[in-house]
Design a protein around this nucleic acid. Structure first.
Length: 822
RNA sequence: GCGGCUGUGGCGGAAUUGGUAGACGCGCACGGUUCAGGUCCGUGUGGGGGAGACCCCGUGGAGGUUCGAGUCCUCUCAGCCGCACCA
């Protein structure tokens, strides 16, 4: 019934998966010799529904790297876990009433099944989900370590508020200023929130980008996100209020051109300054409107510049001029000091505001904006040039020089100093959500926030009645859980009811894998130092900023606490491209979603895995094609049929002593393939060309099969199996087993026989004036003169050289001769 | 607006250091196997010209450097992504 001549991936794959499962082939010890360890890690999946094509690509990539690395003699840690807390499971619970724990467990089970069917080489002894108390106990512990060192703190902040669902939203839940779920316009509310002090690490996060091998565009994105600006803090005094107001500016060289002064609506002195003045009511109304408006609305640069005068002035420290104060929503409280000096001649925004409010525009740098019309004054001009119109010795000085001199002057006068500012904000980690890690803090009326004692960890996430948001954290409804005694004074107190952002969970999971079953500590320093940093991290670009920045920050914080001995978590990073369908992102609404499971059912895991790697360069987006899958399946079938037609040598993969004719050709091709695949895997992520090299080898086997000796063919086929193993581990194993009687994963990576990479002759390309005119067979060792002679005597060369005068002869040994003529 | 990425046959892509453009796969065409279809095997396949040997053109576009450019430089067009009132 069963056709023996037919490649049957399912029986092959199940058979080897059983071996790997029972022998625990991919498990590694915690205390491996650090000089031999390599840590290969793919970003852990968020378990929601079934794995999709992006997962298949991610883990096929990582597994190829892991397999290849193992066979080069390294001990490889290749673990798996689940980023299990998060909003989708909670939203599902709100809709269906099913506890997030149940839907998450179902999804995890599905991921586990699929990963096993795909044959991914995972050390299952280290598996965990971030929602398990044995994991989040340590998330809480680490949070408290940060709290004790002041790295975690609580303050009031503006957060996104959905008036319809009566809940706070995560930034990720706000799309175009609207609530992702109900579509209501999001408001801003001031609430007490927990933050992690990532801004303390801004400079190190920036500098250490130089030490890690990451794609340049990811580093650039992180640099832009951190947004370091150098400038100065300058003090403007408001005499009538007897208060100094510092501002941050990147252009202290334009200080003489400051003609007004603007404060953010959130600035706490705004109402006080306006009080009693003629604009008091107007200011109050303006501030009230501004602070309830969405960031989305306020953030637009195209928006007209509005604002209200405060009815007071400040003194420009360099010239003593009194300039008017305003409140305007284009100034952000979160950046700098929440107040700015406005230089309308040299700043686009200040210019727009000055025009709208009839304020003076004073040029202090010579130059004109190139985009300004010929009849305009060329303002606002933000370029460089000499200073002008200051009425001091600075006039005529180039602004670059004036920058430093003005800052020095301010410093001497006690009116300012050089300063650095960052775009990066502290990381807001509290979420008014149920399905997350509880923040281990107890609020006591007497003692304030008190950490939960270490011995009481973990603070278990309690079961609750309803998940629907009611204007406060869902956990607040678990009265029995919330009410506790203060660990410090024993008085009645209440637990913190916010949970942590899920990015906290995923900021340290890679450390836990190193020592996943430790119930005494988050990890032992020895285990972590043996494996970390991750040698190769692989995941989607969508995490280029948040996850990858948070994890770097976390590692640096752990390093400073002495918990780890390194301060970058991921030495090398690879970001994979998306798999699209008909050129578009797969989504349920487009109806173009295809699942890996159906392809694994139809063609086997090896075909599905090979195809996602063959489809194109892995860092680029690639479009899925069913015909392409069949092509890869055909290739694997052809390799299987070759192995099926051969008797096993039972003695390993052995290159024949001295093959000749077709046999020699095959042995050479096999060595060429070894060389090609090794280079493609070892020095770049070129899986697509590596697979095509094995295809070429297989094609040559078919081409030469009738003329070659069996030993050479066996060597070529076994080599093909051995080389394809990292991409198609089951078939690779099957072929090496059948033909050579060895277990592919235990075989060292094949070594090239350099003598087989060379041949006696090569094809010499003959050019005249850079154009190919002929090709001739040339001996490999021939010298330049001999090559020129050969080229000149090639038939079509003779025709092109006839009657021409030679100007120059260029020889590239082993490749070509180019004769330049007139 | 700022920053980044990508443009190569009918399609996905290859060309690692400036040295034969189009490897490999898909698709298509023809032939073989087969009762037939499919499978499988083989041959061909950038465009144009020529009976043919061959010739011309060709890597988004325009220039440039070079004996030689998909690759380096300048300008430019198109598409995608990230950030965006950050003083």
């Amino acid at each position: 019934m069963e056709d023996e001549r037919r490649y049957d991936p399912h029986s092959i794959e199940e058979r080897w998966q059983r071996v790997w499962e029972t022998e625990k082939t991919w498990e590694v010890p915690n205390d491996a010799d650090p000089s031999r360890t390599t840590y290969v890690l793919e970003m852990l999946p968020y378990p929601s529904g079934e794995p999709h094509m992006g997962h298949l690509k991610n883990y096929a990539l990582g597994d190829a790297v892991a397999h290849f690395t193992r066979r080069t003699g390294r001990v490889v840690l290749h673990p798996m876990g689940y980023d299990a807390f998060g909003l989708p499971a909670e939203n599902h619970a709100i809709k269906t009433g099913v506890h997030p724990r149940e839907s998450t467990a179902a999804s995890i089970a599905s991921f586990q099944r699929q990963f096993r069917r795909w044959g991914i080489s995972i050390d299952w002894s280290r598996e965990f989900g971030t929602h398990e108390p044995t994991y989040y106990r340590w998330t809480q512990w680490l949070f408290l370590q940060m709290y004790e060192r002041g790295l975690a703190y609580r303050r009031e902040a503006a957060v996104n508020w959905c008036p319809n669902d009566a809940t706070v939203l995560a930034n990720e839940q706000v799309t175009d200023g609207r609530c992702e779920r109900c579509g209501a316009e999001v408001e801003v509310r001031q609430l007490e929130q927990w933050f992690l002090r990532i801004t303390d690490y801004a400079d190190r996060l920036l500098e250490d980008l130089g030490e890690i091998e990451w794609p340049e565009h990811v580093k650039t994105m992180q640099r832009n996100w951190i947004g370091r600006s150098e400038g100065a803090e300058v003090v403007f005094r408001c005499e009538s209020a007897e208060t100094d107001y510092p501002v941050f500016t990147t252009r202290p060289d334009t200080l003489f051109g400051a003609t007004f002064f603007v404060m953010a609506p959130e600035h706490r002195d705004v109402l006080k300054l306006a009080a009693g003045g003629e604009h008091e009511d107007e200011v109050r109304a303006y501030v009230n409107r501004a602070i309830t408006e969405s960031n989305e609305l306020r953030g637009s640069a195209e928006r007209p510049k509005t604002g209200v005068p405060l009815g007071r002035t400040v003194t420009n420290p360099v010239n003593g001029e009194q300039i008017p104060m305003f409140v305007a929503d284009y100034v952000l409280m979160e950046y700098g000091t929440g107040a700015i000096m406005a230089v309308p001649a040299h700043d686009e925004r200040d210019h727009a505001f000055a025009l709208a409010h009839g304020l003076p525009i004073k040029r202090v740098i010579e130059g004109a904006d190139p985009d300004a019309g010929p009849d305009s004054d060329g303002l606002p001009y933000s370029g460089e040039g000499p200073l002008t119109g200051c009425g001091t010795e600075f006039d005529g000085t180039h602004n670059r020089e004036a920058f430093g001199r003005i800052v020095d002057w301010l410093d001497r006068e006690g009116k300012g100093h050089s300063s650095v500012n960052y775009r990066l904000r502290d990381w807001l980690i509290s979420r008014q959500r149920y399905w997350g890690c509880p923040i281990p803090i107890i609020h006591c009326a007497e003692c304030g926030p008190v950490p939960v004692p270490e011995s009481d960890l973990p603070v278990i996430l309690p079961d609750i009645e309803g998940y629907a948001p009611k204007g406060r954290s869902p956990l607040a409804s678990a009265e029995d859980w919330v009410a506790v005694d203060c660990p410090s004074c024993g008085a009645a107190a209440r637990r913190e009811t916010d949970t942590m952002d899920t990015f906290v969970d995923s900021s340290w999971y890679y450390l836990r894998y190193c020592d996943a079953r430790n119930d005494e500590a988050a990890w032992s320093r020895e285990a972590v130092d043996a494996w970390m940093p991750v040698s190769q991290y692989i995941g989607g670009v969508e995490h280029a900023i948040l996850h990858l920045l948070y994890a770097r920050f976390w590692t640096k914080a752990m390093h400073d606490m002495g918990l780890v001995g390194f301060d970058e978590p991921f030495a090398r990073l690879f970001t994979q491209g998306m798999i699209t369908r008909d050129g578009a992102k797969m989504s349920k609404s487009k109806g173009n979603v295809i699942s890996p499971a159906s392809y694994v059912d139809n063609y086997g895991a090896d075909t599905a895995r090979c195809y996602v790697l063959f489809i194109g360069p892995p860092d680029q987006d690639a479009d899925w094609s069913d015909e392409g899958v069949e092509g890869v399946h055909r290739f694997l079938s052809r390799l299987w049929r070759l192995s099926n037609g051969l008797e096993s040598s039972g003695s390993g993969i052995v290159q024949p002593e001295s093959p000749d004719g077709a046999g020699l050709e095959l042995v050479r091709k096999a060595n060429w393939a070894i060389d090609k695949v090794t280079k493609d895997m070892g020095s770049r992520f070129a899986f697509n060309t590596a697979i095509s090299a094995v295809m070429e080898l297989v094609n040559d086997c078919y081409r030469l099969i009738d003329r070659t000796d069996e030993e050479s063919l066996r060597f070529a086929v076994a080599t093909a199996g051995s080389l394809v193993f990292p991409f198609a581990p089951h078939l690779g194993t099957e072929v090496v087993d059948r033909v050579a009687g060895r277990r592919a994963w235990e075989e060292p990576w094949p070594a090239v026989d350099p003598t087989m990479l060379e041949s006696d002759t090569f094809e010499l390309v003959c050019q005249v004036n850079g154009k190919v005119r002929d090709r001739v067979e040339a001996p490999s060792g021939a010298d330049q003169a001999a090559l020129i002679e050969l080229a000149r005597s090639a038939p079509n060369m003779v025709a092109h050289l006839e009657g021409k005068q030679t100007v120059k002869e260029v020889v590239v040994p082993g490749r070509l001769v180019n004769i330049v003529v007139r």
